[in-house]
Design a protein around this nucleic acid. Structure first.
Lengths: 324, 324
DNA sequence: TTGAAAGCGTTACCAG
DNA sequence: CTGGTAACGCTTTCAA
């Protein structure tokens, strides 16, 4: 690899001068600047980012820690983060934590050792203090960890209410809910939203809520059980699209039809929701926008630019398709 | 951040000694080793990887360049790569090229500047020479670029034949093919496999092949057109699962049934294929294994370990589900 | 306007 | 067995 020294000697100047033109910083006469630029071109010189990082103590790299890139929600998020990071001159290191705290901790250590400039994090387990102890910018996405940490989430409760009310408007009388894991804030908020809408109906009781663990197979089983217990159910709100698809499959398995017998609505708006038959009605999150905003905000922190907002609760949108 | 100097003074030894115990290299007496280890513990010291990289000219980081992480084939691949990289002490930088050569080139430059130790690449446009000019290990995945570059691909033609023959075994008489983009090797090989099976049938002609560009929407249109031209078609082999799902939707739209009227089979085995109704019969690629092998092989190259094979054409497997 | 040199945190060589 | 020190490639301060 050609280094700054090579450029310097090729141009007949010192490395300091080359550095100055590289960074457009400090005085350089027009003449020597031209000479240097020519040398750079001729040698096809590219500055060594590692050496730069060492000196500057930052790396133009950010970490992205997600539970599992294989979970259909995250590819779009990752894409958004990477797109905007790239646009702003940053590179992104991808980490899959499986939601396990040891993995998260491990990745944080590794990322710190590599001098990453900041981290975008989707974690339910990491604490406020652990994150602050890093002493680098962190933004939390799709999870609320603390009011002190810049955060991007969506209107979970509102979306859940929207979903449930929509089912009511469609004339559904017995609406069940497939919830996500207990202790997960998103799951709880969506469940609360559902309960706010149907909690006071006289037919309602807790047995209309089952746990599908945000997974398709678990949701299939949960739905089958649910429908056997309550054959009168004519609408289901699932707390994410993956489970909603599980519900569709379960309904199908039991020989009933979606949406004729049982209307189903999901949450997230992953691309999968357009690929099923019937296509899934869902509460769509602005996933790409979330990733975009997270990356942009993180980089504003890194570059110490003025920051308008540090907490975004983005709006969601009902997308009506065929399943309800 | 605490540095090796802090550890050294805290332990009352020189930095050289600390470095020796850190790397378990060179002589260190049991006694001083203990002292140093204690100092490391007490200060919670973690070596600075950037400084290491600068000296060693390698970064324990690999680049992963894919067209688009949002394409359902790649998350699983990325996960496999990241898992095995992490296991071996490496970190992965994710890059989305959109298959555009300028983006690919740009990322290669950036990655080189960051001293990545190697790159896993899924590209149809980059040439042999461009890759060799990097002078770092590269493995090509899901694409054959050159015999000189370590490569991991699958039995495309064999899989395509398997798919087409399977449809025949199911008693289908007029089998059409939705192919991927021209110029894409994978698409061509799969198309060839199809033609080898039905090319000699007397009914066959080129109009039974349409191009779905590996995309769902394009495949829907292509299928509708196809079925209007050839209402006698009773089986469709789509060159990837995304298009196969498009085909299912098109068939549905035309008021026909899958598989009763038209049997459909896909290719890839993405997780989506289990989520549709009906579930998709497909030729499954060992995606996770491919990513695993790619990462493991790349790292063997990086660490100059002996390498058994440098070209893998992995087998595919027919997974029969409901769509045929 | 330019250059010399220190320093970023490591590793590895050479003495002792 | 241990320590001093040059070197990795760059940026920035200080002098000239």
């Amino acid at each position: 690899m050609v280094s700054i020294k090579d450029v310097a000697s090729h141009a007949g100047v010192s490395v300091a001068t080359v550095s100055r033109v590289l960074n457009a910083k400090g005085y350089v006469s027009e003449d020597t600047r031209k000479k240097v630029e020519q040398a750079i071109d001729e040698l096809n010189y590219k500055p060594n980012e590692v050496a730069r990082s060492l000196f500057k103590k930052q790396s133009k790299t950010i970490g992205l820690i997600v539970p599992d890139i294989t979970n259909p929600y995250f590819p779009e998020l990752a894409r958004a983060v990477e797109d905007t990071a790239a646009k702003l001159g940053y590179t992104v290191i991808l980490c899959n934590s499986d939601g396990k705290i040891q993995k998260e901790q491990h990745y944080m250590d590794v990322l710190m050792q590599k001098y990453v400039d900041g981290i975008i994090l989707s974690s339910d387990t990491l604490s406020d203090e652990q994150i602050k102890a890093l002493h680098i910018p962190v933004v939390s996405i799709d999870r609320e960890i603390s009011k002190d940490i810049p955060t991007i989430v969506v209107e979970n409760k509102k979306g859940a209410k929207l979903a449930t009310q929509f089912l009511q408007q469609k004339g559904r009388k017995r609406i069940a809910h497939i919830r996500g894991p207990v202790h997960i804030v998103n799951a709880n908020e969506r469940c609360e939203g559902y309960q706010e809408v149907v909690g006071n109906e006289q037919w309602f009781n807790e047995s209309y809520i089952v746990n599908g663990h945000f997974e398709m197979d678990a949701a299939i089983e949960a739905t089958i059980e649910l429908l056997q217990r309550h054959p009168e159910i004519d609408g289901i709100f699932a707390a994410n699209d993956t489970m909603a698809i599980g519900a569709i499959k379960a309904v199908h398995k039991l020989g009933k039809r979606t949406p004729e017998d049982i209307a189903i609505i999901g949450f997230d708006g992953i691309s999968l929701s357009k690929a099923t038959i019937p296509e899934l009605t869902t509460i769509e999150q602005p996933i790409y926008t979330m990733g975009e905003k997270a990356a942009a905000m993180l980089i504003e922190f890194i570059e110490e630019k003025p920051i308008a907002e540090t907490f975004y609760r983005l709006d969601v949108q009902l997308v009506e398709r065929e399943s309800s």
